[in-house]
């Protein structure tokens, strides 16, 4: 089989060819140099999709909720893209990507595109190529794109800088559910969901959460948007309609209000920083691979200090591109 140029794949993806969408995401994930100009061109063509982020600790019911939500959005006529992230094993670098198995009722609908991604060492709840995958799905005409974060840490606040609407999921019976919210995800939610509301202990979680939000809101009351707390059972379907209504309302507010504009700018700013970060990390690896740096020798010999040499190293990283590309 011959190698199909990424630009050709992008045209096919824009026509909705699923194989091309999948292949482009693989190339973005692998960081193939040939795909980069294509990704740059794709970005300019995006911006139509509504990006919905879903976070919450592992086991809180994110994947199951995504399945229920996607099904409902689909019934309303949207094409739905899903990027679901799971952790890579720190030992082998491999992974078992388990989100998709919870979404098996969506399996054969070409209007729903599910892509699983491993973190491969990336921090913050997303993988390095998650945002590129979102772009590619946007290009392919998916109206709503849902990102499911890893859900291991309590520091997954980056999702709020990657999505237009951020949903934080808390589950009853996990004990640490509310804990995670205390530790920093409280502020990032546009919508709070308490999952597994078919369980008898869900009322308690709902009450705790509402109480905590009232305390927070006394300090930072927003006039544009009141963060709702919605009880959902992905099993019975209870609350899914309310959730879809809240998402639709939030989208309208986010598009029109001044706060929404600020949010869009913050998303762009985050994207820029992330891209720069990745660029530097790559250069770092490439420069390191070229052999033991003379800078380190000068540092070891006390010829110079780490601060001066670090500046020199950064200058080298920037110069590296013109030498090699």
């Amino acid at each position: 089989m011959s190698y199909i140029p990424s630009d050709t794949l992008a045209e096919r993806a824009a026509r909705g060819e699923l194989q091309a969408v999948g292949r482009l995401i693989s190339r973005a994930e692998a960081g193939v140099p040939e795909v980069r100009p294509t990704l740059a061109a794709i970005y300019r063509r995006t911006g139509a999709a509504h990006v919905i982020g879903i976070t919450g600790v592992a086991g809180s019911g994110k994947s199951t909720l995504v399945a229920g939500l996607a099904l409902r959005l689909r019934q309303a006529g949207d094409k739905v893209g899903i990027v679901a992230i799971d952790p890579s094993s720190p030992y082998s670098g491999g992974s078992i990507l388990g989100d998709r198995i919870r979404m098996s009722e969506l399996a054969a609908d070409p209007g729903i595109f599910i892509r699983s991604m491993a973190t491969r060492g990336a921090l913050g709840g997303m993988a390095r190529a998650t945002l590129e995958a979102v772009d590619i799905l946007d290009l392919a005409g998916f109206d709503a794109i849902i990102i499911e974060t890893v859900g291991v840490g309590q520091d997954e606040v980056e999702i709020a800088r990657a999505s237009h609407t951020t949903i934080v999921v808390s589950a009853p019976g996990l004990g640490d559910g509310i804990q995670a919210i205390k530790a920093g995800t409280l502020e990032i939610a546009d919508i709070h969901v308490v999952s597994k509301c078919d369980r008898s202990d869900a009322d308690r979680t709902l009450m705790d959460l509402k109480q905590m939000l009232m305390l927070g809101h006394a300090a930072a009351a927003s006039t544009d948007w009141q963060v709702p707390v919605i009880g959902v059972s992905a099993y019975s379907g209870e609350g899914i309609d309310a959730l879809v209504t809240a998402i639709t309302r939030h989208r309208a507010v986010a598009l029109r209000s001044a706060a929404g504009q600020t949010r869009r700018l913050a998303i762009a700013d985050f994207r820029l920083r992330k891209t720069a970060e990745n660029l530097l990390a790559e250069r770092f690896a490439a420069v390191a691979a070229e052999g033991a740096p003379p800078l380190a020798r000068r540092l070891a010999d006390r010829d110079a200090d780490p601060y001066t040499l670090a500046r020199e190293l950064v200058a080298n990283l920037l110069a590296w591109e013109s030498k090699h590309e």
Binding site: S88, S89, S92, G93, G94, S95, I96, L97, R100, S116
Partner: peptide
């Protein structure tokens, strides 16, 4: 997975 592959 233990051999470093991504498995679905």
């Amino acid at each position: 997975r233990d051999a470093g592959m991504d498995v679905i």
